[in-house]
Amino acid sequence: MKRLLPLLLLATALVTGPLPASVAAPAPAAAATTELVRLDGVTVRLKPRTTQVVTVNHTRGHHARVTFWALSHGEWVARFRAVDGRIGYAGLVAPTERVQGSGKTPLGTHRLPWAFGTHARRDGWETSYRRIGRDDYWVLDNASDHYNEWRSRRQGGFRWRLPASDPNASEHLRDYPQQYEYAVTTSFNHTQVRHRGGAIFLHVNGRGATAGCVSAPRWFLRRLLGRLDADRVPVIAIGR
């Protein structure tokens, strides 16, 4: 969605107070069964084989605490945290009740499929990382078969000429060089329900609230891109 004016690092004192103690993982279950775990007060619906989690705990207004967790020897360990994360300017909403352009961030657990940004891919980043080109958009045109997908102007199939004021305007990714310097996609609305919106990412903080995404400081996203591993099925869990 359109951006407005927009963990405690283990080795540096970026915030005060200790990271929470590690949390024991739930007992193993059948592969098809969803497991629940509470991390920093947020309920996480683990996918099969998930061993990396980002939690987003709403604190006040459009602010949130954002923590990266990893499963280690049967316990969930907080690896790093930012206390100055952001959510949408209109707050939080159940995923199925979200409306495009509402400025609300969808609650719940979502996959973190792949990352993108303004830099060339670096060693240690997933090979699925994509670098933004000048003609790249995220399609939010409700009349397009490519709704809520990355698409270039050259590929077509959406009305890229629509002005930003149009409710069907797509995001020109290069228009957000600060927020999208480092970003990770989420699986929100991967079924492409029209008018529910899309382009819900975890990205670098802008000057204020987001228009539905989750954002965190630049250092957090840069560090996260070096840690995320698709084989560990990472997810983001957003709570109140």
Results as ranks from 00 to 15, higher is better:
residue 192 Q to K: 15
residue 63 H to F: 12
residue 12 T to F: 03
residue 129 Y to D: 06
residue 78 A to Q: 03
residue 71 L to C: 03
residue 95 P to W: 10
residue 184 V to R: 04
residue 66 V to H: 01
residue 189 N to R: 02
residue 60 R to D: 14
residue 52 Q to M: 09
residue 127 T to L: 12
residue 89 Y to F: 14
residue 208 G to A: 13
residue 168 N to L: 05
residue 98 R to W: 00
residue 93 V to C: 02
residue 36 L to F: 12
residue 14 L to T: 14
residue 30 A to N: 12
residue 190 H to Y: 02
residue 163 P to A: 04
residue 13 A to H: 07
residue 77 V to H: 07
residue 62 H to D: 14
residue 37 V to T: 03
residue 218 R to K: 10
residue 108 G to W: 09
residue 104 K to S: 08
residue 104 K to M: 15
residue 160 W to G: 11
residue 111 R to V: 06
residue 108 G to A: 06
residue 225 L to Y: 00
residue 191 T to Y: 14
residue 109 T to W: 09
residue 168 N to A: 12
residue 191 T to E: 15
residue 12 T to R: 07
residue 34 T to G: 07
residue 45 R to V: 00
residue 202 L to R: 07
residue 55 T to I: 03
residue 130 R to Q: 15
residue 54 V to T: 00
residue 209 A to M: 01
residue 215 S to Q: 01
residue 200 I to Q: 06
residue 207 R to N: 14
residue 133 G to I: 09
residue 48 P to T: 09
residue 32 A to W: 12
residue 115 A to L: 05
residue 176 Y to K: 09
residue 93 V to L: 02
residue 198 G to Q: 06
residue 28 P to N: 09
residue 109 T to D: 09
residue 221 L to G: 00
residue 44 V to Q: 10
residue 192 Q to L: 04
residue 164 A to V: 12
residue 156 G to C: 08
residue 110 H to M: 06
residue 46 L to E: 10
residue 132 I to D: 09
residue 102 S to V: 00
residue 72 S to Q: 13
residue 175 D to V: 03
residue 224 L to E: 01
residue 233 V to W: 03
residue 198 G to D: 07
residue 122 R to H: 05
residue 131 R to W: 04
residue 186 T to I: 10
residue 118 T to H: 05
residue 37 V to D: 06
residue 234 P to Q: 05
